[in-house]
Nucleic acid binder design. Structure first.
Lengths: 234, 234
DNA sequence: ACAAAAGTGTTGAGAGTACACCCATGC
DNA sequence: GCATGGGTGTACTCTCAACACTTTTGT
């Protein structure tokens, strides 16, 4: 901040809001886009579903707090995480003023080890299209995250974050179709994704499944993440 | 947040960070993109320049705090304001833990009434390309805001927010050229901006200046703000 | 040989880009 | 009448979008 503090400033005399991080964790499960929710135990909103979160400790960064909350619920580290928006309506928590910095994360289905988190909450994966009522303003947060995810999918390559390390082009296309909610043309999709030069062939082919085995690809670590958008102005 | 609080939860026993809002205020002045800075009076970073900001009061929303900080420095209300990002590195303020929610604002040059704010800080407009050293992590915040502004200019119509209510197409094009840092083709620019149907003619023509008087336009209030981007995936 | 999924090219339409001259006004 | 900035159209290129058949494997 940049407002000068009074000379006799005592940090503890100010009414300070609490600060939390909340995290919308997406995964593709059974051909649906799902969100990880936890069941609240205590008031307010006891027995309601909510997205995972945590208080921000006094000496940790926001990112560290988000990663910690993610690890506590999923046992995962090294997943794609991005700050979403900060929600700070004065009455969003009925107990006291709580400002929350929302994040979203994309985790591959095969990396999830259920119950491997440290917390003992009841957890569940819910389809984005069939969410239960959520505590606080979490419905708004999830909606915002979903909008952002669809938007990012159109001009970046974050889609890979929802798939295993190696995958087929059909799997990748299906992931895009699920999230965008529409069918895509196979030939156009392949041409576009390959010409972006963000994939490399593993040389291996898929072993199981019917039909012709598909070539397996992996994301090129050295690929540029952002793909240029068409410019509105020439 | 969604982590359950202990049954004997006492909000005042937690170490709470302070929360501020800081605001990057852009305007086009003398054919340059400039940022409003204020000179700090007290330690830390005394006598250094910083972007305006304020503590978030316990009963006001983040947006209200940002708008209040903006009004205090510029005397302006009803300007374009958008939340940017939340910065929360533990050591970004040497005094105590301060998390800041950064905003950016676009104000038309002709609306600024210098010294009309309530605060008594020394203030100044600085070209984005010649910023002095800034207090805290404010250089990072301004860089982030500038990147976001250029990016938004390419797929939305926020550029109008930096111009008076009525303006000529040449003025609008010049604004885009200054922010994007490159020359644009006059015919292509006009075709594109007019075909977007976000402008309407006022019927009036510019009175002063040399040469043929230019038609004055205004932004259509009913126009959709977001312009569709080309999709990466078909 | 047949079922199942993988893989592959071409064409027409629309948008982007590059480019040069005439028009209205003040002095 | 000339200097100054405003305003206009066209041709080429490139990307997007629509569309159907052949190939490889397992049974």
């Amino acid at each position: 901040m940049s407002v000068d503090l009074p000379a006799n400033y005592d940090p503890n005399k100010f009414d300070r809001p609490s600060v939390t991080v909340d995290i919308v964790i997406f995964s593709l499960i059974e051909d649906e886009l799902k969100v990880l929710l936890i069941k609240r135990q205590a008031a307010p909103f006891a027995d309601m579903w909510a997205i995972p979160g945590s208080f921000v400790k006094i000496a940790e960064s926001l990112e560290e707090a988000a990663v910690r909350a993610l690890a506590d619920e999923t046992g995962l580290e090294d997943v794609y995480t991005e700050q979403l928006y900060t929600f700070g309506a004065p009455d969003r928590d009925p107990r006291t003023r709580v400002i929350t910095v929302a994040y979203f994360a994309l985790v591959p289905h095969d990396a999830i080890h259920p119950q491997s988190g440290r917390d003992t909450h009841e957890t569940g994966w819910f389809s984005i299209s069939q969410l239960p009522p959520l505590a606080f303003d979490h419905t708004e947060i999830v909606d915002y995250a979903y909008t952002r995810l669809r938007y990012k999918l159109e001009y970046t390559s974050v889609g890979f974050q929802l798939l295993p390390d190696v995958f087929t082009l059909t799997e990748l296309q299906t992931a895009y179709e699920i999230i965008l909610g529409e069918k895509l043309d196979k030939r156009n999709f392949r041409r576009k994704i390959l010409s972006a030069e963000i994939l490399e062939e593993t040389g291996e082919k898929q072993k199981e499944g019917e039909g012709r085995p598909a070539m397996l690809y992996r994301y090129r670590e050295d690929a540029v993440a952002e793909v240029k958008t068409r410019r509105l102005f020439p």
